[in-house]
């Protein structure tokens, strides 16, 4: 009973991410991790809401935020969540090539999002001289949105690593859980963004 054989069964089970004990553990452990991440972001949101009004001047949310750009960013991230669902769908059908393809699209959308975010920050800093240090509102804004951006970057690097590492050997019961939790992470980032969009931008301008 070699390792190779157990991890590469002739017929892949329909839920390859949970077919081994290690996979089940990863699956559950990652959900718990996301629970902790929720508290992390909740603390950041709480801080942001408390400091939202401390603008120390006229760089206020109403003046800074343009909903157009943020709307495009939201669409990008929401679509990338959808494409990662497709990827996992193909994983469950054991179609490795299509999974890689959809993951690739997810990654491209993610990097585009990140590009817009960097542009946005650049615009605030150079157009309005609104920085991390200009007011408590600035600190809270860049910290909350920046933490999210950092998560996006980490998620992208993670997914790319998985794609490249497994490109040659395809899907097995060892890497399926890894792909699966990476996609969970991606959804989580997406959900957090929906809250950022609502709480920071939408509530900021109206």
């Amino acid at each position: 009973m070699s390792q190779d054989h157990t991890l590469n069964p002739e017929v892949m089970p329909s839920e390859p991410e949970k077919a081994t004990l290690e996979g089940k553990n990863k699956f559950l452990g990652f959900w718990f991790f996301l629970g902790g991440e929720t508290v992390l972001f909740a603390s950041l949101f709480g801080t942001y809401l408390a400091l939202q009004g401390s603008t120390m001047g006229d760089n206020t949310p109403e003046k800074l935020f343009g909903l157009g750009l943020v709307f495009i960013m939201t669409m990008l991230l929401l679509t990338s969540s959808l494409t990662s669902v497709y990827a996992i769908y193909h994983m469950k059908n054991n179609d490795f090539r299509k999974m890689q393809l959809w993951l690739g699209i997810t990654v491209i959308l993610g990097f585009t999002f990140l590009g817009f975010e960097i542009y946005e920050f650049y615009h605030y800093i150079h157009g309005y001289e609104f920085t991390f240090r200009s007011s408590a509102f600035g600190s809270a804004f860049y910290t909350l949105v920046g933490f999210h951006g950092g998560h996006v970057l980490f998620g992208l690097l993670w997914i790319v690593t998985l794609m490249v590492r497994n490109a040659k050997r395809g899907l097995n019961l060892y890497n399926a859980p890894k792909f699966y939790i990476a996609s969970l992470y991606w959804h989580f980032i997406d959900v957090v963004w929906v809250f950022i969009f609502t709480v920071v931008y939408l509530m900021g301008v109206i």
Partner: peptide
């Protein structure tokens, strides 16, 4: 850490911060 090492103003009243947070 941000307040001490990177100049943010979370707890700094002169930047509108709030130490009760």
């Amino acid at each position: 850490m941000f307040d001490r090492l990177f100049g943010s103003g979370f707890f700094d009243a002169s930047l509108g911060g709030n130490s009760i947070i």
